Lab assay of single mutants.
Amino acid sequence: NKFNKELQWATWEIFNLPNLNEEQVKAFIDSLRDDPSQSANLLAEAKKLNDAQA
């Protein structure tokens, strides 16, 4: 299933962003679980936040 692979990839990527704190990671993962179809958008937002906090 396409969404499942995207969800797994986005989850792994978010867990490995070095500049997000635990609460931010949890919030993004919760959002992914709530709406897996938004995984690409949520990953992009997480990466933006990660870069901003570098």
Rank of each mutant, 00 (worst) to 15 (best):
A27I: 10
V25Q: 14
I14G: 02
L32W: 02
L49T: 08
S37P: 02
D51H: 10
P36S: 04
A54P: 07
A54S: 08
E6R: 02
A54D: 10
D34H: 10
I14E: 04
K26L: 09
W9T: 10
Q24Y: 01
N21K: 13
K48D: 08
S39P: 04
I14Q: 03
W9R: 07
N4P: 05
S39G: 04
D35S: 09
Q53L: 10
L7H: 07
A44P: 01
L17W: 02
L49F: 05
D30L: 11
L7F: 11
A46E: 01
E45V: 08
R33D: 09
E13I: 13
K5L: 09
D34M: 14
E45P: 01
N16P: 01
N16V: 04
K26M: 11
I14S: 03
N1M: 02
L43V: 15
E6T: 03
E22F: 10
L49G: 00
F28M: 04
F15D: 07
S37I: 07
N19Y: 13
N21M: 08
K26V: 09
F3P: 15
P18A: 05
Q53K: 03
Q8N: 06
Q53D: 03
W9F: 12
D51F: 09
A40E: 11
L43I: 14
F15N: 15
R33S: 13
W9G: 06
N41W: 13
L43K: 03
F3Q: 04
D51R: 07
R33K: 12
A27M: 14
K26S: 11
K5A: 15
L32V: 06
P36D: 02
S37F: 06
L17H: 03
A40T: 12
N1S: 04
A54Q: 12
L42M: 07
A27Q: 14
F15K: 15
Q38D: 08
A44M: 12
N21W: 09
E6D: 11
F3V: 09
S39Y: 15
E22Y: 09
Q53V: 06
K2R: 05
D35L: 05
L17Y: 08
N4T: 05
K47G: 02
A40P: 08
E13T: 07
L7P: 04
Q38F: 03
S31P: 01
W9V: 08
D51T: 06
D35Y: 08
F15M: 15
K48F: 07
S39N: 06
N21P: 02
A40W: 13
L20W: 01
N19H: 13
F3W: 09
N16Q: 13
W9Q: 13
E6L: 08
K5R: 03
Q38E: 13
Q8S: 06
P18S: 11
A10V: 10
A54G: 14
Q38T: 08
N16G: 09
Q8F: 09
N50E: 01
F28V: 02
R33Y: 15
L32S: 02
F28I: 05
A46N: 00
A44R: 11
L7W: 08
F28A: 02
K48R: 13
E13S: 04
L42Q: 03
N1G: 06
W12N: 08
D34V: 14
E22P: 08
A44F: 09
N19L: 05
L7A: 12
F15P: 03
N41M: 15
L20E: 00
A46P: 00
E13M: 08
D34L: 15
A40M: 13
L32D: 00
D30V: 12
A27Y: 15
P18V: 07
I14N: 02
A10G: 04
L43W: 03
S31T: 10
K5Y: 13
P18H: 11
P36V: 06
A27L: 08
D30K: 05
E22A: 13
I29K: 01
I14M: 04
L49E: 03
A52V: 12
R33I: 14
L49Y: 05
E22D: 12
T11P: 02
V25A: 10
N4Q: 03
K26G: 02
L17S: 02
D51I: 11
F15V: 05
K47L: 09
K47A: 06
P18D: 06
W12L: 13
K47F: 06
N50F: 01
T11W: 08
K2A: 15
F15T: 15
Q53W: 07
A54I: 08
I14A: 02
D35K: 12
A52P: 03
N16E: 07
P18W: 05
R33E: 12
K47D: 01
K26T: 09
A54T: 14
N1E: 09
Q8K: 06
L20I: 04
Q38Y: 06
D35H: 13
K2N: 15
L17A: 01
K48Q: 14
F3Y: 09
A46F: 03
P18Q: 10
Q38N: 12
P18M: 07
L43N: 01
D35W: 07
I29N: 03
F15I: 15
W12K: 14
A10P: 02
N16A: 10
L7Q: 11
Q53A: 09
W12S: 12
N41R: 09
N41A: 10
E22L: 10
S37H: 06
I14T: 02
A27P: 01
S39M: 12
I29W: 05
L20P: 00
P36H: 04
K47M: 08
N1F: 00
K48S: 09
N50H: 02
L32H: 01
W12F: 10
K26P: 00
N19V: 01
A10R: 01
D34K: 09
F15A: 14
